[in-house]
Design a protein around this nucleic acid. Structure first.
Length: 513
RNA sequence: GGCCCGUUCGUCUAUCGGUUAGGACAAAAGAUUUUCAUUCUUUAAAGAGGGGUUCGACUCCCCUACGGGCUACCA
């Protein structure tokens, strides 16, 4: 049976999407496009109590920023299976629940929270697994124990109820996971999960199965945390009689905390020193700000690339991939089974690779943004900005660092690297600087060659070796000890600036000495 | 606790019974760059432990240990 490949990413809008979720979305996207299928987005908002305003927009915007585009669903123009928000699909689920009840696969349960609690306590006290299952359901208030009339009466009087799945007793449930192979569970370890809540909403389990069926999903690619509930989903497909179109399952390994304990969670926020979210997130209730990759200066291509390689490999030594290349190379059988710790160093390296690939022109807007942020909103010559980017590009790993490394192109230094000054400043320097100023003033055709020539002749006249002075000259012009080729900096900042900076350093440092 | 999944250099990983166990990031050393960064070269670094199966196991099976996930009218 050849069905068109259809996969979905189904987040719930309970907060910002963390990078583990982004990776799940990415793998779904890659898989769909690899097989010429559809990738769609469905919002699983069946828990109204956990709804967080703005979370849905955040999720969609994050995916868009990264270029993980869906062809259908929330944020991507809906499609033939609209609506794609489960809260808006609410009326649809009831008939499926009824279908299950009529077929004897589910039942009404009227137990109150207190009754459930006391049942659990009772069982725990006798050292038995506290669960609502084939044994305990016989002792609870549900349509299996209550008379038909009583059930009818309770339903008619609109008493609160839930619908539970009637789990077959002691049955082995086996299914094939695309990543893990055959996995099996026994129903005697499971419980009669609630399918339909007393607020009239389905639970995840029911909604996900019904929607995947209706939306003709062929592959469910999701995090490993869903593995234990997969057998329930398999059983649901059977109970509905949909087993012939049941999607294949693929449970992805989790992204772990770098320190080695537990899966990476939303709460990790900034604690770890690197973002766990794609973009900044401002929590609407606490006001707390969690930083994102975008604002931290990561390029979307780099984030996609590094995330793709965290849990998947192409089987070759290629490490740099465009999205399109990833689509071509991707396959589920090269997804690893074990969890991966996020490596900050590698992430930085990936970003550096992508910064290098950017043209100087592409870097200019980032520099302009930094200039504005630092109060330098006067207009700079585009050619000047372009040259600055060109010189600084290879020094940086993040676009954000552009400013740190190019500050002195725009502002004369107000401090000088102390170590260099201490080591290289001596009595001979003032005279040398005077000669240098004299030499530079005399230049007609000012460029890096002519400055260097003036520099060389000043050195010769004063009997000083280039080695002993270049570093100091750099500090005089820029304030700092490292940077791009010095004479090119001198050329870029211009003759007047260069002269000014020499004079300024001369007087400042002379007074200090 | 119970159930399930996992376990190769510090980290991400390759290996689908026979390899000097390979690559990348990070680390260290050297060269280049009259600085820093880059680049290049080199070094160090791994099959959790114990049993099997086999002529031969990192690779297959079992046990133990460790790690992780799940165990809600949350997803």
């Amino acid at each position: 049976m050849d069905r068109r490949v259809r996969v979905r990413f189904a987040p719930s809008p309970t907060g910002p999407l963390h990078i583990g979720g982004v990776r799940t979305a990415l793998y779904n996207y890659l898989f769909a496009n690899k097989h010429g299928g559809d990738f769609l987005i469905r919002i699983e908002d069946t828990d109204q109590t956990r709804f967080v305003p703005g979370a849905e927009e955040y999720i969609i915007n994050s995916l868009k920023w990264l270029g993980i585009e869906a062809v259908e669903g929330i944020g991507f123009g809906d499609g033939p299976h609209a609506p794609y928000r489960q809260s808006e699909r609410k009326p649809l689920y009831k008939q499926y629940v009824l279908q299950l009840i009529e077929a004897g696969h589910a039942y009404y349960a009227f137990d109150t929270a207190e009754e459930l609690e006391s049942m659990r306590e009772r069982l725990k006290a006798s050292n038995v697994d506290a669960k609502y299952d084939a044994i305990t359901r016989g002792t609870m208030k549900n349509s299996l124990t209550l008379s038909e009339d009583e059930v009818k009466r309770r339903l008619e009087s609109e008493e609160a109820y839930v619908v539970r799945f009637k789990l077959p007793r002691k049955e082995e449930v086996k299914f094939h996971d695309e990543i893990r192979g055959w996995v099996s569970f026994n129903t005697n370890q499971m419980d009669d999960k609630v399918l339909f809540k007393s607020d009239g909403m389905p639970t995840y389990h029911l909604a996900n199965v019904v929607d995947d069926f209706l939306m003709q999903i062929t592959h469910v690619i999701r995090g490993e945390e869903w593995l234990p509930s997969a057998p329930l989903h398999v059983l649901l497909y059977r109970a509905f009689g949909w087993e012939n179109v049941m999607p294949a399952f693929a449970h992805l390994p989790l992204l772990l905390k770098p320190e080695g304990n537990g899966k990476l969670s939303k709460r990790d926020g900034d604690r770890l020193g690197f973002p766990v979210f794609p973009m900044n997130w401002n929590d609407p209730s606490s006001g707390e700000l969690s930083s994102g990759y975008r604002e931290a200066g990561y390029l979307p291509e780099a984030v996609v690339n590094l995330l793709a390689l965290l849990g998947w490999n192409p089987g070759t030594t290629q490490e740099l991939f465009t999205l399109e290349e990833l689509v071509q190379a991707f396959s589920l059988d090269r997804v690893s089974k074990s969890g991966a710790k996020f490596d900050q160093n590698k992430a930085k390296w990936f970003n550096q690779q992508y910064v290098r690939k950017m043209s100087d022109e592409m870097l200019v807007p980032y520099l302009e943004k930094a200039l504005a942020e630092n109060g330098l909103d006067k207009q700079f010559d585009q050619a000047f900005l372009l040259q600055t980017c060109k010189l600084v590009k290879e020094k940086i790993s993040f676009t954000k660092e552009l400013w740190d490394y190019s500050r002195y192109f725009f502002v004369a230094p107000d401090t000088y690297d102390e170590q260099v000054v201490k080591k290289r400043w001596n009595d001979k320097i003032p005279a040398l600087l005077s000669d240098l100023v004299y030499g530079i003033k005399a230049i007609d055709n000012y460029n890096h060659q002519s400055v260097e020539a003036a520099y060389q002749s000043a050195l010769e006249k004063n009997g000083i070796a280039g080695k002993d002075f270049l570093q100091l000259f750099r500090v005089i012009l820029t304030g700092v000890a490292g940077g791009p080729p010095l004479f090119e900096i001198a050329e870029l900042i211009g003759k007047d600036n260069t002269l000014q900076r020499i004079e300024q350093a001369k007087s400042t440092l002379q007074n200090q000495a």
